[in-house]
Design a protein around this nucleic acid. Sequence first.
DNA 1: ACCTGAACACCGTTCAAGT
DNA 2: ACCTGAACACCGTTCAAGT
Lengths: 237, 237
Amino acid sequence: MATRTRRTERREEPLSRERIVEAAIELLDTAGEGGLTFRALSERLATGPGAIYWHVANKGELLGAATDAVVAAALTVDPAGAPPSPRDGIRLVALGLFEASEAHPWLATQLAAQLSRSPARTVAPRLFESIGRRVSDLGVPREDWFTAASALMHYILGAAGQNAANIAATRSLGPGEDRAGFLDAVSRAWEALDPDDYPFTRAVARQAREHDDRAQFLDGLGLVLDGVTAAAARPQA
Amino acid sequence: MATRTRRTERREEPLSRERIVEAAIELLDTAGEGGLTFRALSERLATGPGAIYWHVANKGELLGAATDAVVAAALTVDPAGAPPSPRDGIRLVALGLFEASEAHPWLATQLAAQLSRSPARTVAPRLFESIGRRVSDLGVPREDWFTAASALMHYILGAAGQNAANIAATRSLGPGEDRAGFLDAVSRAWEALDPDDYPFTRAVARQAREHDDRAQFLDGLGLVLDGVTAAAARPQA
DNA sequence: ACCTGAACACCGTTCAAGT
DNA sequence: ACCTGAACACCGTTCAAGT
């Protein structure tokens, strides 16, 4: 986000956990999950591999810190303007996460792992809190809070994860390939499926080609929100 | 599923892609994603690492084959009895996948990656077809098919992925730890959160402790299905 | 056709030694 | 307190050589 010009070296300021995490995120974004290496990282930071271990316990902790940093940034887009309705608030948080995991295709997988760590003081549970608070504002009965918030989280993480996998697959086709080309290829493959075995997938191939990722994510979120609020309106289970 | 007694060796019958995939699944299940190693695998099959490469191109292909085999098994539980309603059918398929990813915690992550491969002749798209066909049976208008089926897939994969992460986290606490102990720890951690910052998560801590994974998965699926069918009943967007 | 096993390049992590 | 860089054990993958 900040303006930077360096490429590989950046001497002067000493190593710090912050700089390491920042470099790790860049590496993850440009080279993928397999590209984050203590050697590549130390080269980028102009030091040796061992130096990093003074600031960070191991690779797992580094991935956790990178995930936290990115999610924290994604959750801080909001504040200005009038507070949105609960529904719009959820939409905003969800879209923020979706876009973050578009820019950082490794995010969704890491987040899923992160959410289940018991020491809940990382950023991941803040996401759950952020969704959940608006679920309660939506008028969902208290005994359904956990289920409703969980369902929304699952949808969001599932969609973000799928989108990230698509992006990774697009990239793996070669540097020249773009999203439209990838969708076109998928759509064509679907149209070539056996009509007896895959009638639905074939029927939907055209929609797959023409759909807009973000819009479709929000449409799907709308369906889940409809289900959640329908349950809120109903008297009792 | 079949009865077996061997531990590490099983000479006699020659190496085959099938036996390799079977051993890979066992390794994945017992030792986790990091436990699948060409060396561990070849030891288990009483051969050298190189032998495996005659039957399988590389590790990615091996993971893909393992995923396919497990999903195929999960999708074949159904046939007997009267054909269920579309809604029950989706529930059945979803629960099959949820349970499969409970037995194979590595499944959800792999499946997400698998679904975006363009050569769509693997088992993964069959899952999409299986869900989608019942979505159309549900009376969802044609132009919403893709969105509705995608939303269901995202929820299912997100929930399965989260569940798998929880299982992995439980195991990592030590071999003696069980699900109840893990939930208890998470719940306790949530209750210890700051009341100002985490009112919702705290309020929901007790439900988190007492919930049943499978039941909550189906409840959440019910919410999404409600949203999907509500859209079906509505006239036009 | 199928398997062996040494070898290559690379990985995460450690640690004595430096400043 | 912080960093260096060689070293260890391990990984995926290749390939000449065997049967």
